[in-house]
Nucleic acid binder design. Structure first.
Lengths: 339, 339
DNA sequence: ATGAAAGCGCTAACAC
DNA sequence: GTGTTAGCGCTTTCAT
C-alpha cells in the first residue's frame, strides 16, 4: 500500500542550506535566483538523486505531464489480441515513443467512461482518442470535463472540431481507383467496416462521389471490423453472387485477406479476373498469396501531428488543425497486371 | 496548462451539510459514520458526479492506482513498429484490459531510467517488467527505490527473486523436440536470440540438457532479435553450410520465417528434408508457406498471474511466485510429415 | 457520530 | 536575491 517516500524538496533545501522555495525555483528555472545559488542547488539535487514528486507537483500545477490514449477501435475488436490490426499497435508504439521524447508519459485508457472511472483518468493533461465514433461517449466526457484532446481522424459528429489528424484518405483512395482503372477495371466494389467512424463514413462518400464523376455504378458492401478475415470471406461470396467486379477495395488488410480466400474458393483469379487492394496495410496483406496491394499508413508522421495539436490545445494556443498526412499506395501482386 | 479543477470534496460536503471528513469517510467506507449519513453523502456525491482527485488522493495515500509497464525486449527492437512481434503487443493488450478490470490504470514506460525521468514513473504503485535482461537497469532502479514489481520470465541475474510468471518453457520445448524425434529427426538445431534474457538463456540450457540426455550433439545458432527475418535468412545459409539438420527450432516467428526463406533458396525442402518450428507464434508463422509449427503462448493467463503477483507485492503479502503457465504446441505443415 | 485541523510535497505570492 | 507562508484536494488522527 503506502510506500515510504523518498527524498523531498526539504531534504535538498536543508543540504544546500537554502529554502524550499529556492530549490523549487532553481530546479524549475523560475523566479529570481542568483546564478550561483541556482547552480549549487542543482548540483546538490543531482547528487542526492532528487526527483520532484509528480503527484505533489501535479496537485499544485494541475498538470501531471501525462496524457491518456484511448484505443477506440481496439475496444471495438472485442478481444485484446488484435491479430493483423497492426495499424493500431503501431500507433501505440509511435505515440508512446514520441511522447516520451517530449517528457510526457502515456497512459493506456481503454474506456474512461466505464465506472468506476480509472483513478488518474480525469487528472491527465490531455487525451488522444483514436478514431472516435459518432457520438463517442469518451469525447463527450472529455468535452464535459474540459479536458483537451486530439483525435486520430475527424469526429464524424462534430464538423467544427479541428484538432484531428489523419492520413489524407480522399487522395489515396483516389489513387487506388485510378490504379484500378489504369489496369483496365470498369467496375469497382468497395468493402467497408461498420464502425460509425470517419474512416468508414468518409471513404464511402469519397467512393460514391468518385463513381458519380466517372459514371460508374457504386457497389458498397459492409463487414464488421471484428469479423476480420472470415467476414471478408463471407462477403466475397455475396459479391461473386451479385456479379464479379473488375476490382475490389477493402478497408482493412484482414478483410482483404478474407476476400482473397473467398474469391479463390469460387475460382475467381486474382489479379487476372479481379484485382484486390486494401486501404490499410497489415501482416495479412504482406503475407497473402498473391500479396495484396495496400495503402501504407505512416503512423509516426500522423501521431507527431496529433501530439503537436494536443500540446497546442493544452497550452491554450489556437488550433492548427486539421492535419492531413500522406500515405503511399504500395502495389503488390494482387493488382499488378502485365498487359 | 493549469486546467480549472472540477467539483471538490468541499463542494460535496457543503451540499450534503456535513464536513469534508464525513464525505471522505462515506465514500471510502472508513471511519464510524451513521448509515444514514453515509448513504446521504453518497447520494449527493453521485448526483454531483463527484470524482475524488487522483493526485490529491495519491499524495495522501502514496498510492495512485496505476502501474507501469516496461516493454524491455520491445525497446531492444530499436524501432516502435514491432512487426511480427505480436507476442508483446498481445501482452500489452492483455495487461491493460485486466488491469482496468481491477481499477488500475496502465502507464507505458519505455524506459524509466532514461533522463529526464518521466513524471509519474516514480509515483506508480508498481511495475510489470517484460523479459528483464541480465543486470537490467530498470529492475535496479525499481529495487533501489523500493517500488514493487513483477516480471515476465525470471530475472536471469536474480535467482532469489520469485515474483515472476512465464509459460513453462522447459515443458513445451521438450514437447517440440519429441515431436521432431517422433517424425524421424536425428539431428536438431536451435536458433536463439541474443538478448541476455531468461528466454534465451534457459531455452539453450534446456536444449543442451536434452541433447545430453539423448546423446545428440548440440548445435546452437544465434541471431539478434532485431535482425528479424533477414537475420534468420542469413543463419539459414550458415546452417546449411555446416550440414543440413533434420529439424530446426527457432525462438521467434520472424526468425523461423526468415530461415524458411533461406532454406528454400538453398533448395532444402520443408518439411521433407528439414522440419521447422518456432517457439513463439506470430503472423509470420501462420502466413508462411508452408505454415510454420509454433508454440502458442497464452498471454492472458500469464499476465493474470503477473498482476496477481504484483498486487500481492503491493499489498505487502508474501510472494506466491513463480508461476508457470501452460502453452500449446500447434503443429503446422512445416513439421508435419506423412509417413 | 461528527467536525476541526494537521499535513502529504510542491509551487507561487508575498514579504524582507 | 532569498525566506516565509498559504494553499492544491484529500485522508486521518484527535477532540468533542
Amino acid at each position: 500500500m503506502a510506500r515510504s517516500k523518498g527524498i523531498t524538496i526539504r531534504d535538498v533545501a536543508k543540504r544546500a542550506g537554502v529554502s524550499v522555495a529556492a530549490v523549487s525555483m532553481a530546479l524549475n528555472g523560475t523566479g529570481t535566483l542568483s546564478a550561483a545559488t541556482r547552480l549549487r542547488v542543482r548540483a546538490v539535487a543531482e547528487e542526492m538523486d532528487y526527483q520532484a514528486d509528480a503527484l505533489a507537483r501535479g496537485l499544485r500545477r494541475s498538470s501531471v505531464g501525462a496524457i491518456g490514449l484511448v484505443m477506440r477501435s481496439l475496444d471495438s475488436l472485442g478481444e485484446y489480441a488484435p491479430r493483423g490490426v497492426d495499424v493500431f499497435t503501431r500507433y501505440i508504439g509511435a505515440i508512446s515513443a514520441q511522447a516520451m521524447d517530449r517528457g510526457l508519459s502515456v497512459m493506456l485508457v481503454p474506456d474512461p467512461t466505464k465506472r468506476p472511472t480509472p483513478p488518474l483518468a480525469l487528472s491527465l493533461d490531455g487525451y488522444i482518442v483514436m478514431m472516435p465514433h459518432l457520438d463517442d461517449p469518451v469525447v463527450a466526457l472529455l468535452e464535459r470535463r474540459g479536458i483537451p484532446y486530439a483525435t486520430l481522424a475527424r469526429d464524424p459528429g462534430r464538423p467544427d472540431f479541428t484538432d484531428w489528424a489523419t492520413e489524407d484518405e480522399a487522395t489515396y483512395f483516389g489513387r487506388v481507383y485510378e490504379h484500378f482503372i489504369a489496369n483496365g477495371a470498369r467496375s469497382i466494389v468497395l468493402l467497408r467496416g461498420t464502425d460509425p467512424n470517419a474512416w468508414n463514413i468518409d471513404s464511402e462518400a469519397t467512393y460514391r462521389a468518385w463513381c458519380e464523376s466517372t459514371g460508374m455504378t457504386p457497389r458498397v458492401y459492409k463487414s464488421a471490423e471484428r469479423a476480420g478475415e472470415s467476414g471478408g470471406e463471407t462477403v466475397a461470396h455475396t459479391i461473386v453472387d451479385d456479379g464479379i467486379p473488375d476490382a475490389i477495395l477493402c478497408h482493412t488488410g484482414r478483410q482483404a485477406a478474407g476476400v482473397l480466400v473467398g474469391l479463390t474458393a469460387r475460382g475467381v483469379a486474382v489479379p487476372d479476373r479481379t484485382m484486390l487492394a486494401a486501404a490499410s496495410d497489415s501482416e495479412h496483406t504482406r503475407h497473402s498469396r498473391p500479396a495484396i496491394s495496400a495503402v501504407e499508413l505512416h503512423a509516426a508522421e500522423t501521431t507527431l501531428a496529433l501530439l503537436d495539436l494536443l500540446q497546442a490545445r493544452i497550452a491554450g494556443e489556437p488550433s492548427a488543425g486539421p492535419v492531413l498526412t500522406t500515405a503511399r499506395f504500395r502495389v503488390r501482386a494482387s493488382s499488378r497486371r502485365t498487359h
